[in-house]
């Protein structure tokens, strides 16, 4: 029986119009990318992504760069990635980008044009997700690269040595991976929330609260959070102080690939559920 079922499934998959879907996805992604990146309304995402870069560039111009302070600046960069980008910048950036993709089109009463066109809804959803992810990644990854360059290059030879011969390049890779996973993780969650609720913001803010209190939750519950996976990928330990440090539940250190795989599985599960939801999505503009 199994031997008969396998070729059937393969044949079924081969018979699907993949080339058409690919073309449709490409066009849809291009439209969304243009709207997300080059509109006046998207300017606030540039602000969220590049404001730390602006502050670091002032620091690189104004402050003296003694090679002994490289470790301080490394710690500072880790804090910026962990406390600003993951908790605020990427979070609110993705909330704005991804909740607009479906719910925003409903508000503007334009989603039915897509739904009436001969495009599979899953293709529509995944293209929109791809466009949102590309926007978020382009801005936040560029900002991270610029931050690292502006932190280390003003140190001159010592900074270049740290970056290219020391642990700098590994840290940069880790930061980029963290930002990529954060954008994809938050993006998938907000896309789903925007389909589930008329107003996704309270849900997103509850999610922000969940992410904030996550370190003090039991280790089992910590697995249901984006930030907990990202914490294991941080190349520099920034440490917590005060009452939070007392309440923090230290989990077993997890290997980088396990954390990455765990988060990718979470993203896949959320996207699969979103694909299932969009098949039965109905629009009632009168209630929006």
């Amino acid at each position: 029986m199994m031997q008969q079922a396998d070729p059937g499934l393969r044949e079924d998959l081969m018979r699907q119009p993949w080339a058409l879907w690919w073309l449709q996805a490409k066009r849809l992604t291009q439209i969304e990318l243009r709207r997300n990146l080059f509109s006046w309304r998207a300017s606030w995402i540039y602000f969220l992504a590049f404001i730390p870069t602006l502050i670091i560039s002032i620091h690189s111009i104004v402050d003296p760069h003694d090679p002994t302070s490289i470790s301080d600046d490394t710690q500072m960069l880790a804090s910026i990635v962990h406390l600003y980008y993951i908790r605020l910048g990427v979070f609110f950036g993705c909330l704005g980008i991804f909740s607009r993709l479906i719910r925003g089109e409903m508000i503007e009463r334009s989603l039915h044009f897509y739904l009436l066109s001969p495009v599979r809804r899953e293709v529509l959803l995944l293209s929109k997700f791809a466009a949102g992810s590309a926007t978020a990644l382009l801005l936040f990854v560029t900002a991270t690269l610029a931050n690292v360059a502006l932190i280390y290059l003003p140190f001159g030879a010592a900074g270049r040595d740290y970056l290219f011969n020391g642990p700098g390049i590994e840290q940069l890779e880790a930061y980029v991976l963290i930002i990529v996973l954060a954008c994809l993780g938050y993006g998938a969650v907000f896309l789903l929330l925007s389909m589930m609720f008329k107003n996704p913001t309270p849900g997103a803010l509850l999610f922000l609260g969940w992410e904030a209190i996550n370190p003090v939750l039991p280790s089992m519950l910590q697995k249901l959070s984006v930030a907990s996976y990202l914490r294991h990928l941080m190349p520099v330990n920034i440490g917590v102080k005060g009452l939070i440090a007392l309440l923090t539940v230290e989990t077993e250190p997890v290997a980088g690939w396990v954390a990455t795989l765990g988060l990718l599985l979470l993203i896949t599960a959320v996207l699969l559920y979103s694909c299932y939801r969009i098949r039965t999505l109905e629009i009632r503009y009168t209630t929006e």
Partner: peptide
């Protein structure tokens, strides 16, 4: 903000994001 849902988020963002930016200014520029 013409979308009510976004307005709720923006009110929080306007309080929290500058707080993060302020912390970066304090940390980076001493």
């Amino acid at each position: 903000v013409k979308w009510r849902g976004v307005a709720t988020g923006v009110i929080f963002a306007v309080i929290l994001v500058p707080a993060g930016v302020g912390a970066i200014v304090t940390g980076v520029l001493h």
